[in-house]
Amino acid sequence: MSKERIIYGIYDDDDIILNAVNSIREKGHHIEEVYSPFPIHGLDHALGLKYSRLAICSFLFGLTGFCCALLLMWAIMIYDWPMNIGGKPSFTLNENLPAFIPVTFEMTVFFGAHLMVITFLIRCGLYPGSNEKSPDPRTTDDKFLMEIHTNNDEKNIKKIKDLMKKTGATEIKEKE
């Protein structure tokens, strides 16, 4: 009796599914997931997803890169083996700083970009060879799929299916 049942509603249009998400959530149902071929603007808000903190991560990674670059160049050019290059002032970090700007900038971008992408892949569980797929292969083409989990209660399931039908679903399936 306690077995969970999964219902899929397939929609044809991004605006229709956005409205459907809004009205189904208004009725108090929890929408587990929406699969779409492209990002739908406002869908994350409609689903009640929290905003993504990736940008903050990237800033922190960039800051790390900035510090690493300065530390590296200080260690090499100032601490370990200071060089007299044409008598130019280069014996403290401060004096040599203008020449360090390009590499510091590049390292900031390098860290910020790559570590953010790695964070993204880890957080989304994406990796080469992963076999995960959406429940219906057409969701990478032109179909939009809404997934609702519910308990094994026929009355409730019927209510959800009716709601999906009413909000414009063209196909309603249940996971066996």
Partner: peptide, 8 residues
């Protein structure tokens, strides 16, 4: 797989 959170 095109999940909403992944797209976001």
């Amino acid at each position: 797989s095109g999940r909403a959170k992944h797209w976001q």
